[in-house]
Amino acid sequence: MKGEDIEIRVNGEVRQVNSGQTVADLLRELAIRPDRVAVELNLEIVDRQEFERRGLRHGDRVEIISFIGGGNSQSSAVSTQRMGFALTADC
């Protein structure tokens, strides 16, 4: 039986879902493997074991987080070509 549509935010985007949908349902709908993500619901992390039980409500803000390629913070630092000095490995 289809519930009412409710509006939530997922990763910053507005989304309509059925009321009564759980976090696990949402992940399934998005084809996201639950074992590879963290889910934050209204700034609180949802335990993976709770995905199937935790229901979504109107106005909920969901963040679905995973790992991406990255070393350190993305650099916007000044290019070294602008420096005029010669570099020596010296100590």
Binding site: V10, N11, G12, E13, L30, A31, I32, R36, V37, E63, I64, I65, S66, F67, I68, G69, G70, G71, N72
Partner: peptide, 19 residues
């Protein structure tokens, strides 16, 4: 190996996963 923590791209589901 280090990885960064970011939102999953839910609009472009064809994107592969680093993992």
């Amino acid at each position: 190996v280090t990885v960064a923590v970011r939102r999953v791209n839910i609009t472009d589901r064809s994107k592969e996963n680093l993992l």
